[in-house]
Nucleic acid binder design. Structure first.
Lengths: 114, 114
DNA sequence: TTGTTGTGTCAGTTGACGCTAACGTTAGCG
DNA sequence: CGCTAACGTTAGCGTCAACTGACACAACAA
């Protein structure tokens, strides 16, 4: 369901530096050079990271003269949120089911299962 | 804030097969062999994936005789959810702010900014 | 046009990761 | 004890990914 379309996003977020870049452009639209200045690696590395983020749909690119401005694209995180929320609720449901089963087994005469 | 503690989880989820394993044990507690039987790779590979997932706090391991039963651990996804929700709301706030600014610039005499 | 600024792109290297095959380990049965 | 079943662990291999340095390109000013 949300596997093929968010596969690139998962791989993109696996890199800590890309997550840092993403947080950097979450609130402000920054140029590639401004982003690169915030890290201790080459501008080349940042440019490649930005390409990965863009192809994963996590950032948008806008050209203004010779500069390229980047901004976080929240829609790109939709698939991730679906996966996490699905996992979260499923696992929690199982937890509740187990608690209920345990309570029912240890005391079939009571009804404090909430 | 939630960087060092969820770094392993991000890397673990970057692998599609590990996400498949996680979904497999989200609702049912399965043994390593049962999990391995669901894929076309060696049990060794699955065992290594399970080690990665366990060290990332995404699954719990319970021994029963010679078997080892695994189950998804929803708490392991907490850091991820925090990151995603933070990114999501921040980026959306900026989006609303931009819409408001644009509306205010194009029509300073109206008040339909919601 | 020439020069400068802001960025992307292309080799090439290094380190990490996923996989397999062989071996080691623990639990249970006879 | 010997034997088997169910796993984990190690060594080695192939591949991918992140990084650097050199080069190419577009936009703008003089």
């Amino acid at each position: 369901m949300f596997e093929d379309e968010s596969d690139d996003a998962f791989r993109a977020l696996a890199e800590p530096r890309r997550r840092a870049i993403l947080r950097l452009v979450a609130t402000d639209e920054l140029a590639a050079g401004e982003i690169a200045a915030a890290f201790d690696v080459t501008r080349t590395a940042i440019s490649q990271h930005l390409t990965v983020l863009r192809e994963a749909g996590l950032v948008s690119e806008r050209r203004a003269g010779t500069r390229r401005l980047y901004r976080a694209r929240p829609e790109g995180l939709a698939g991730l949120r679906e996966f996490l929320d699905s996992m979260w609720s499923d696992a929690l449901d199982v937890g509740r089911r187990l608690v209920e089963a345990e309570a029912a087994e240890q005391a079939e005469h009571r009804t404090d299962v909430a």
